[in-house]
Design a protein around this nucleic acid. Structure first.
Lengths: 115, 115
DNA sequence: CCAACCTTACCACGACTATGTCAATGTTGC
DNA sequence: GCAACATTGACATAGTCGTGGTAAGGTTGG
């Protein structure tokens, strides 16, 4: 299983090398690095890249939207808050269940904007 | 339960009237309309507006991100595709399960961009 | 009927997204 | 050691988001 450098990975997935670097910055597809600092794309990353193109083509999804979906998955309190809001805020019981996760994530967000 | 017009609803929720109209265009908070065409905000909408502000303040969520989360909920095939992608594309079984919903949503997307 | 509110439709503007290109420099393989 | 690749960083640009304003006109309530 040979790993590809950025140019070859680009050629084989239909992205530009530039975009591969951008996708790394947005944390959507993160290759590992060789000893010289070169990005190395394995099968896993190549599959991610190809299916990411499909997602965009078929559904018109933006990269930033995918990034948000990833964030939803990494931050369960955010996920809970969003789900609650989407559920309509017409469910009075759901509203009462909020305060638990609220403050814990509040502190996390404050740390983020402080940095 | 009196319904409020846009100015009053704005005053009571901390948004500007301008933003209330924008939120309607993005389909995040959709008031009903009176016979004269005026927007009318009931308790339900006021709660949505207030908690939406909280969501943004606490988690730094963008409106477009919320809108995407709503879309995920309205379009199960999209949801499935995104979940599959996020799951890593390292699960070979998941990949094989794709083709079913793929073409059905493909046509839907084509109709959307044709419009 | 008139003031105070609303409607839609525009223009503007800074910030960010998604992309490209270019420059200066470092790594690899033969 | 040299050609062909890679690295980061900068600048550019079209498009969208979030927000404000203004203008021309419609609705409401006393």
């Amino acid at each position: 299983m040979k790993k590809l450098r950025v140019g070859e990975a680009a050629a084989q997935t239909g992205w530009s090398a530039r975009m591969l670097r951008y996708l790394e910055r947005t944390a959507l597809v993160e290759p590992c690095r060789g000893s010289g600092g070169y990005r190395l794309y394995g099968l896993h990353e190549l599959n991610q890249l190809r299916s990411l193109r499909e997602l965009r083509r078929r559904f018109g999804v933006e990269l930033s939207e995918l990034a948000f979906a990833a964030r939803l998955r990494r931050e369960p309190p955010l996920r809970a808050a969003v789900d609650t809001w989407l559920a309509g805020s017409d469910a009075p019981a759901a509203r009462a269940a909020m305060p638990a996760w609220v403050e814990w994530e509040q502190r996390k967000h404050e740390r983020l904007i402080a940095a």
